[in-house]
Nucleic acid binder design. Sequence first.
DNA 1: GTCTATAGACCGATAGAC
DNA 2: GTCTATCGGTCTATAGAC
Lengths: 205, 205
Amino acid sequence: MTPGSPPKISFKTQMLLAREDAIITVVNRLLAEKGFEAMTVDEVAAQVGIAKASLYKHFPSKEDLAAAAMVRVMRKAQDFLKGLAPDGAPMQKLRAVVRWTMELKLAGGMPSLPSQNSSLRATLIANKDYMNGLIEVSDALGAWIEAAQEDGSLNPKLPAIAVLYTLYARACDPVLEFLKMGDQYDDARIVDLVMATCFEGLNAR
Amino acid sequence: MTPGSPPKISFKTQMLLAREDAIITVVNRLLAEKGFEAMTVDEVAAQVGIAKASLYKHFPSKEDLAAAAMVRVMRKAQDFLKGLAPDGAPMQKLRAVVRWTMELKLAGGMPSLPSQNSSLRATLIANKDYMNGLIEVSDALGAWIEAAQEDGSLNPKLPAIAVLYTLYARACDPVLEFLKMGDQYDDARIVDLVMATCFEGLNAR
DNA sequence: GTCTATAGACCGATAGAC
DNA sequence: GTCTATCGGTCTATAGAC
């Protein structure tokens, strides 16, 4: 830190950000392992090691806690997308994203939110960071989907939106948990199996 | 009801069963439209038109209410399985079951339970009727899966258990809701789309 | 000395149970 | 219709940084 360079970020602010990061990490783990409803704010505070009131200094509601976790995941997804070889085949990129998503879920890093909770939905939709991330990811995937349909690697008869949803749905696919629970296959094999059913389908070829 | 035939079921018992049936119908609908956590027993009692205390005469807990709804769905599934032409191609039977399941979900008749709630899981596992139904259905589907793999219509490289889970997962596939929310396709088209991605996969053929 | 963040008690509402 | 537990959210006294 040379004199004249702009530190700009006070020690206090750094602490604040670091704590927010710690909070989100805990929330992310709890959301992944027990879901939104079963996660209590007290639990989050206890695991972070701070008082509940302090939590509310950072995040105004439980829903915002969950939204923050989703924003982080979305950021990680965007980073992953950017890290893909830009000139790779679109189909390979789609496959890579789905694989990454399922590996994250199997590793316990994918928050699982109830799709039916309306107050949570409202908070997410109102969250600019989340929505921007979602749109950006969807745009990228959408472009690859169309490209893959044009180059003949992805079924052109399927509407792009249906393909997009099918890919997103891998992030909460219960087949992953079921197979993991069976304890018969390791994570890599489980991912391979679901990749196969997703892209090649159940029919024999 | 001719004299001499065994009525055996008293009027009182009939009323009891009829009310249980009404309760389960309400529970089934509420579970389908808002899920287990969001469904309150007050709501169930109100919609059935009975006192909350009366509910507990029939079912000892909220979990048991949900279990009863699942038992009914399982029964309906078994009836559907039995109604399929016994000499039909196994693959066609599997497709028919998946289609039936998704149509039921789209029609708002499929209870959606959180797969993470452990007390609910315990209640379901302890429920003999549910478990028997589940096992019977799984056995039937498992036999068809293996037969379809042998006759070359279903990918023989996939473990039967993975196929079974993949079929079951169509009962809670969020893609159905997403597409329905988009309001761009009618139910029949949505089912066709998900049938296609499920059996033919996303890859071009 | 002032001011902010924290800890931990506290409140009100909701919902399951009886 | 009551009871009680739980949980999201708030309030207040205090400790510590500046």
